[in-house]
């Protein structure tokens, strides 16, 4: 079920360079959103910017008594839409469509794994926080997070991941924090150096080049996992076919375009056909 509701903004706080955390009271959605699902927000009120903007769920903030639980998102300011969103104040209303997309598959067969690896690139770490929180409750797996960004000031949500029991490894492209280089290279080094009884299972979210590198790694090391992709969207509900990604059918090897908003945003790591 998809809801088209008005949310009331409870807070909208700058938490890092160009990064904000927004909490809102969204009737119905707090109990519906699963890790990896997203919401489509109408950031403006007029016709420019025209389209909604998709944001993944960062966390559900539990409230006591008869107060409704809140929904949190974390966003980076990247353009006109997100810039407008920073100007929203406590008490203001915003149109929200949700809960959208498939979300991460956390069925028992994955929860039973002895080791789960989370890989986040840039602001792509955000949905992994909610996932980590859920894994902590539902799985006994050791959860290791590999988080990368361009530079130190772009690294966010590390504290959250640690609170949810993750071991966190950080990389920056410029070496200002942690491993110097891409997060996928850091992970490759880890996989090469570590002996495991059982292959770890991967959940990832980040920019296309990172996810592409990860799927190469998955192929090389014979790993399974899921990746969440981020793309500009039109309707957000599967009608316009604007946000597609090429995938192959793993059973018959045919390929076609799937809708990121409706069939995704989470896909099997081995399913996506990466094109340049």
């Amino acid at each position: 079920m998809i809801y088209d509701v008005k949310a009331t903004i409870v807070s909208n706080t700058k938490i890092a360079h160009d990064v904000y955390r927004l909490e809102m009271d969204v009737p119905k959605l707090a109990t519906k959103l699963r890790p990896g699902q997203f919401m489509h927000l109408r950031v403006g009120t007029g016709i420019d910017p025209l389209l909604r903007r998709p944001f993944s769920t960062y966390r559900i903030i539990k409230k006591r008594g008869n107060k409704r639980d809140l929904v949190g998102i974390i966003y980076r300011v990247v353009g006109k839409g997100t810039d407008l969103l920073t100007q929203k104040c406590r008490g203001e209303q915003i149109d929200v469509l949700g809960a959208l997309g498939n979300g991460f598959d956390i069925s028992p067969k994955f929860l039973k794994k002895s080791q789960i690896i989370l890989v986040g690139g840039g602001i792509g770490v955000v949905p992994l926080v909610y996932l980590a929180e859920t894994l902590k409750k539902k799985s006994k797996a050791e959860v290791i997070a590999f988080i990368g960004a361009a530079t130190k000031q772009d690294i966010v949500c590390i504290k959250d991941l640690k609170e949810h029991g993750c071991k966190v490894n950080i990389s920056t492209d410029d070496g200002t924090q942690g491993y110097k280089g891409y997060v996928s290279d850091m992970l490759e080094q880890y996989l090469s150096d570590t002996q495991c009884f059982e292959n770890p299972y991967i959940y990832a979210c980040g920019p296309f080049p990172m996810l592409k590198a990860l799927s190469m790694l998955a192929c090389k090391f014979g790993l399974d996992g899921q990746v969440s992709v981020d793309e500009m969207m039109g309707c957000g509900i599967g009608a316009c076919l604007g946000c597609v990604i090429k995938t192959k059918n793993l059973s018959d090897n045919t390929s076609g375009y799937k809708r990121i908003c409706k069939d995704g945003p989470v896909f099997d790591i081995n399913e996506i056909v990466w094109e340049d």
Binding site: L50, M233, C243, V244, Y257
Partner: peptide
């Protein structure tokens, strides 16, 4: 029909460009 390769959408001032390609 498979449709066109992505990206298929771009937002412009008070408008939107699309090239879905009749998928």
């Amino acid at each position: 029909r498979l449709g066109n390769p992505p990206p298929r959408l771009a937002e412009t001032a008070s408008g939107m460009l699309n090239a879905i390609g009749l998928q």
